[in-house]
Amino acid sequence: MKPNHLLETVMTKAELVSKIHEQSGLATKAQAEAALDALVNILTTAMKDGNSVTFTGFGSFKVIERAARKGRNPRTGMEINIPAGKAVKFTPGKALKDTVK
């Protein structure tokens, strides 16, 4: 039997657009999709520029620096060097944490 985290369902972009359309009052799904695309573009640009983005009660997105480190190739077990880089980190807000509990 698979662990619970592997049984999760995934909301697709089309399903998210439909939900935005239903709940926002936008006239068409095309407008809802344009709004979603704009949001993703704004978030991406902000983080690319090194800014954090915070939605009070939901959470925050920020870019973190990862140091170079050693790892292992899972197929061969050989040690590899993983270069330093950047990654996006999401920290959920209190309201989101409380809702998910």
Rank of each mutant, 00 (worst) to 15 (best):
V10N: 06
F55V: 09
L43I: 13
K62W: 04
M11Q: 11
K29V: 07
A32C: 04
N4E: 11
V40F: 15
R75D: 00
H5T: 04
G59C: 10
A32Y: 03
S24D: 09
E65L: 10
R75M: 01
E65D: 10
L7T: 14
F90N: 07
F55R: 02
V40Q: 15
E65T: 09
N81F: 11
T12D: 04
S52P: 04
G50A: 10
L43E: 07
E22Q: 11
T56F: 10
L6M: 14
M1V: 12
N4T: 06
A84M: 09
K86R: 15
T56L: 09
A67Q: 07
G85N: 08
K70T: 12
K2P: 05
V63K: 02
A68V: 03
F61K: 00
K97H: 07
M11P: 00
A87S: 13
G93L: 12
L96F: 15
T9G: 05
M11N: 06
V88E: 05
H5D: 06
A14Y: 07
A68F: 12
V100F: 15
K89Q: 13
A34I: 12
G57S: 03
K86F: 07
D37C: 08
T56P: 00
T9P: 00
E8M: 15
G93C: 10
S60F: 05
V53Y: 06
F58K: 01
K86Y: 03
G50Y: 05
L6K: 11
P3C: 04
K48Y: 09
T28W: 09
L39F: 15
G85K: 06
E15I: 02
L16S: 05
G25C: 08
E33G: 10
A95W: 13
A34Y: 04
V88N: 01
V88D: 01
E8K: 15
L26S: 02
V40M: 15
R75Q: 10
F90M: 07
E33L: 12
S18F: 03
I20M: 07
G59H: 04
G25A: 05
E15G: 02
P74E: 02
T99E: 13
T44L: 10
T12H: 06
D98R: 12
F90T: 01
F90V: 02
A34T: 13
F58D: 04
A27W: 13
S18I: 03
K19T: 14
K89T: 00
K101D: 09
I42K: 13
G25M: 08
I80K: 02
K97V: 12
T56A: 11
T9I: 05
K89E: 04
L16M: 13
N73G: 00
K13A: 07
N51A: 13
F55Y: 15
S24I: 13
V53E: 02
D98H: 10
D98I: 12
I20C: 03
A95G: 01
R66Y: 10
Q23M: 11
P74S: 05
G85Y: 06
